[in-house]
Structure formats: structure tokens, C-alpha cells
Amino acid sequence: MTVVILGSGNVATHMGKAFHTLGHQILQVYSRNRASAIALASVLNAEAVDTIENITDKADLYFIAVADQAIQEIVDQLPKDLKGIVVHCSGATDINILAHFPLHGIIYPVQSLRKDVPTPLENIPFGIEGSNTDTTDRLLQMMQNISVGSFLCNSTQRLALHIAAVFANNFSNVLYQIAYDIVEEQNLPFDLLKPIILETAQKVQNQIPKAIQTGPSARGDMETIQKHLQFLMKTPHWLKIYQQLTEEITRNKC
């Protein structure tokens, strides 16, 4: 399959390399930042372009890997009669944004990717959606060669999955930072919390999170909770988070 990568960031880099490794020919890498386009294109043996007008109309796949707010701009500039499949990789953007193209779809990686961090894509589930059965089958087959965990997923399911990923990844990470700040203030190393973080992550691989919930909220230990609240009084924004999560654990226990 011949491919044009539109974007030069995290997902574009990982997916471009994956397509290239599988033997797909990367024709072009597009970025408004020419230096970025050249950097990725050189790795993929592709042509670097920095204007939409110079994008070939001969590719089998046009892979849009830009920030969500930039997808519409790319879509508006691409020729609407492209014969190749036009896809984006956003978790929160509906497939209908691509409806003007005869063939279109979604390849959504359920993972946070950084181009400077090697990440085995074969361990990542990819949500696949296509404009018709043939397109869906082609995208699914292609992505299952990268990750057997690739699966069919409509736009509503994908949005729900993206929200769930924000809770599981982004929100948990900010809680790690709060924990880091709390212990650092007391001259304690964050390393002391790493075993319990790993233990929790390992447990949810085999059990639903509700089944492994522990702590004062799960036990109904109001005395300990009051001590925690008193300690957090000096940081009202953390106090509010603690109270809200305590309420959620208590509600979920019922």
C-alpha cells in the first residue's frame, strides 16, 4: 500500500515507521514545518512536502495525524475526489468529518505515544472504523498486521473509550503528581510510592477495579478520612479532589 502521512508528530512518527517496516511505501510526509517534514521523511524514505497543494493524489492511504483542532483544516484543503482512503487517528473526532471523501475511516491507537519514546505497537489496541464494509476490512486487516489487538469500533464507542483513557491515563497521572508533591514537601522520596503504584496496575490486569478497591473510603474509616482532610486544608484544590474521589469510592461501594 502507498501511504501519505499528514503530520510529523508523535502518532505520525510511530505509525509512519510501522507502515514502513511492514513494507508499505511512504510516498510523502506533510507538515507545515518543513524541517519536521524533512526529519520524518528522511527516516521513511519519503518526500517531504509543506503545502497541501503538493500532496500526490496517487496514494492508497492518507493518514491524518495532527492535533484534533487541525483536522478540519487539513480536510478542507485536501481534494475531495481522492481515490485513496482518508483516515484520521483522533479518539474524540467523529468519522463524519471525513464524509466528503469517497473512502474514509479511523485508525485510533488506545495509547499515549511520544516519538522520542520507543513503544511496541503490537501491544496497542487500535480502534478501526470505515465508511463501508470493504474499507473497514482493508483498514482492519492492515492494522492487525501491526497489532492483533486491533478491533472494530464506531464513533460513539471510540469517544467513550477516549474519555475512559483520559480517566485511566491523564487523570491518574495528575494524581501521581499530587502524590509526588505531598511526599516531596515532607522530604520523602516518590520512590516509596512506586511499589504500590505498580501493585495496583498489576491487579487491574486480572480484576475489575471495583473489586480491588482499598483504603479508608472503602472501609468507611471516617476517622482517618478526617485526618486526611485536615492535613489537606492548606491546599484547597487538593482537598476538593480528595473529597470528590472519596465520595465516588463511597458511592461505588454501595
Rank of each mutant, 00 (worst) to 15 (best):
G84L: 04
D76Y: 02
F101M: 09
G91V: 09
L40I: 02
H88D: 06
N123A: 13
V110W: 00
H100W: 00
L98C: 03
G84H: 06
V86H: 08
T119G: 01
D60M: 04
T51S: 15
D76P: 00
V86F: 06
P125L: 04
P102F: 02
D57I: 11
V110P: 00
N123I: 00
N54K: 15
I124P: 09
T119Y: 13
K80I: 13
P125W: 01
E129P: 08
I124Q: 10
E129C: 04
D76E: 15
I106L: 05
V43R: 06
L121N: 11
A65L: 03
A48K: 04
I55C: 05
N54V: 00
C89D: 03
H88W: 04
D116Q: 14
A39E: 15
K115P: 03
D60T: 10
T51A: 11
R114G: 01
S42N: 15
I55R: 09
Y62L: 07
A41T: 07
S90R: 07
P120C: 10
D50T: 11
I85F: 05
Q77N: 14
G91P: 12
E73L: 10
G105I: 10
L61W: 07
H88I: 03
F101W: 11
K80P: 00
I124S: 08
L82T: 07
